[in-house]
Design a protein around this nucleic acid. Structure first.
Lengths: 148, 148
DNA sequence: TGTTTTTATATCGTACACGATTTAATCTTA
DNA sequence: TAAGATTAAATCGTGTACGATATAAAAACA
């Protein structure tokens, strides 16, 4: 491929990834709208459903989002009564994020979402597994590159 | 997998896609900063380098972005003297987007970007091809789902 | 122990995304 | 051909992303 061809949209790797990610988020939208939350808010809930009572920094590491994004996001979720934000006693710099009853209960309503999305995706299981494997590899490589 | 497992972050398909897309955009950032543009602005340039003089609607279709995102984006690029926005003579509802000399010349400086990114990605060619194929399939499926 | 350095969040400013609505121009059709 | 429907952009409001900076608490250390 010539350098010019590399500059064509369809030959990019980033562009289809960018579009697909947005389209997939859109596919979640109607399901999340029923719960009254956004996609990033859903991600925070996924993290906390797995392990509640995390510090902001722990959520930050899992979602690859810094406090400049997370703080406002968590504040909005606090307004929605999904979680509480409390300064840690041991270290006043840290903030503990804990699910409220409403936040915990929402897991039940969300249980159908992943299966629902799998249907939308319509990929053979084998292909999906391979795809996720490469995606994970790519994520790890980019994570390393990002740290530098 | 149980419904609970489906709700774990690492088992999601959307989450790694969302993170990888963002990390990949970040990887572009230092290269684009030298040109003084953002990633979405780069995408608009990629489109126009392939075919100049498009209507807003044509760019919209290619990037899957509506006018509520595109209009401000194109206005900023107009401020940067990268392109011009002119109402079409035949149909006053439409706007023609045309590259300026500066916008055209930037293609030369951008030529090294895709190769540079390929190095960062560090994926075997075969795996990358397979990955792009699945990504494209996914994109098409989601595009259909989005239209409904 | 007082000062410097580091660390965890928060704040600020800019630029997307995107649902919803508006505006103006063109098309339809009675 | 005039009124209603459709279409292309633009506008508005809200919610992310993220670089840069600020703030306050804890750690390191002279």
């Amino acid at each position: 491929m010539s350098p010019e061809d590399h500059l064509k949209l369809e030959n990019q790797i980033c562009f289809p990834l960018y579009v697909t990610s947005r389209l997939l988020t859109r596919a979640y939208q109607p399901l999340l709208a029923e719960l009254g939350i956004t996609y990033p808010q859903y991600l925070v809930l996924l993290v906390l459903w797995e392990q509640d009572g995390l510090k902001v920094s722990a959520i930050s590491e899992k979602l690859f989002l810094n406090s400049n994004t997370l703080t406002p996001l968590l504040k909005r979720m606090e307004q929605l009564n999904l979680l509480t934000r409390v300064r840690s006693k041991e270290d006043e710099r840290q903030v503990d994020i804990t699910l409220t009853e409403k936040g915990k209960l929402m897991q039940k309503s969300a249980k159908c979402i992943p299966e629902n999305l799998l249907k939308t995706i319509k990929l053979p299981a084998e292909e999906l597994i391979q795809f996720k494997a490469t995606l994970h590899k790519l994520l790890t490589t980019l994570e390393e590159a990002d740290k530098e």
